[in-house]
């Protein structure tokens, strides 16, 4: 009898169908409300920044993979996610070349030089943002009060964190918490739309794309430390609600710190990571020259991820073996 031509392979012989593409597209869907709100607030400028950022990220990824003679994987959507997240924390008026430089730094230096998706020790979008932020000559483009001076949005055009930094907590009385929560505040294109970011983030948690520990403990860490500062000196420091509802904290908790390649895996690692990000944010806001510290806090904690992956339950080492 003729032998059958069968395929032999190790187990398992089925797959759940989960793909990297799926994860990326879930993140893009989750960011869609914030994108729409950003475009409706800042008009075509916001659309220009978002589109150019995504395009730059994908073009740089394709080019560098061609240069490195690797398979081109822009279709998995991870470059698009990096570009979109980067765009959402920028002001709407930022010029194209700054977007391009940020994406080059993020995709080429922050991601592909380390080996591509999964091998990046830092979130590429944050690397890109940090590179343009510490470029002193470009600070004016990234300072929200200066950059957004020509927009009429119908709400108070003052960056709340800059007010806090310059004038102290006593000057914050004209910021309404409800308005802040509804996104009626100056800030990044999408990052300022707090409630829509929250909805998108909850969607990701529910779909299981990100682990719930990071956002929860990020917000807890922010609230706890800012609460301690606030209790010690209410005139100098703002309260926890203000800190959570301004700047990049919400987008940081759900999107910036949860990049899978640069966040821990084990539960206690996630808790420590989230708390560290939140606490470091408040330290930077209180004591650094920068008005918002979320990105630098996340970058700093990203570097500790290999250590946090070593935190695990002691009982996790299995011992019981069945007989027979």
């Amino acid at each position: 009898m003729k032998a059958l031509d069968l395929i032999v392979s190790p187990s398992p012989h089925i797959h759940s169908g989960a793909k990297m593409t799926g994860i990326s597209y879930h993140i893009l869907i989750a960011l869609l409300p914030a994108v729409i709100v950003g475009i409706s607030t800042y008009g075509l400028d916001a659309l220009r920044v978002i589109c150019s950022s995504i395009a730059c990220a994908m073009v740089f990824e394709a080019l560098i993979q061609k240069l490195f003679k690797k398979p081109i994987t822009i279709s998995d959507g991870s470059a698009a996610v990096t570009g979109l997240i980067l765009a959402l924390i920028l002001p709407a008026s930022v010029p194209f070349y700054i977007v391009a430089v940020a994406n080059f730094a993020g995709i080429v230096i922050g991601k592909q030089c380390f080996g591509g998706l999964g091998a990046n020790p830092l979130n590429p979008a944050l690397v890109g943002w940090a590179v343009i932020r510490i470029t002193k000559a470009w600070a004016g483009y990234l300072d929200f009060d200066l950059a957004l001076v020509n927009y009429d949005t119908g709400f108070l055009m003052q960056y709340p964190l800059a007010v806090l930094k310059a004038q102290g907590a006593s000057a914050l009385s004209h910021f309404d918490m409800i308005d802040l929560f509804l996104g009626k505040q100056t800030g990044g294109i999408g990052a300022a739309a707090i409630v829509w970011i929250l909805i998108g983030g909850l969607y990701l948690v529910v779909r299981g794309v990100i682990r719930w520990e990071i956002p929860l403990f990020f917000l807890l860490g922010t609230a706890a430390l800012s609460g301690i500062f606030w209790l010690t000196d209410q005139a100098a420091y703002a309260g926890p609600m203000f800190h959570i509802l301004t700047g990049n904290v919400m987008i940081g908790a759900f999107f910036l710190s949860t990049d899978s390649g640069s966040s821990p895996v084990n539960r206690w690692g996630l808790v420590v990571y989230g708390l560290g990000c939140g606490a470091m944010t408040i330290f930077l806001r209180a004591w650094s020259d920068y008005s918002d510290g979320v990105v630098f806090a996340c970058l700093l904690m990203n570097l500790f991820v290999p250590l946090m992956d070593k935190i695990k339950d002691k009982q996790k080492v299995p011992e019981v073996r069945s007989l027979g």
Binding site: A18, M20, I23, G115, G116, L117, G118, A119, R211, S260, G261, S262, S263, P264, V265, N266
Partner: peptide, 8 residues
């Protein structure tokens, strides 16, 4: 492919 450390 490379592991992306998603932890699933």
């Amino acid at each position: 492919t490379a592991c992306t450390n998603c932890g699933k």
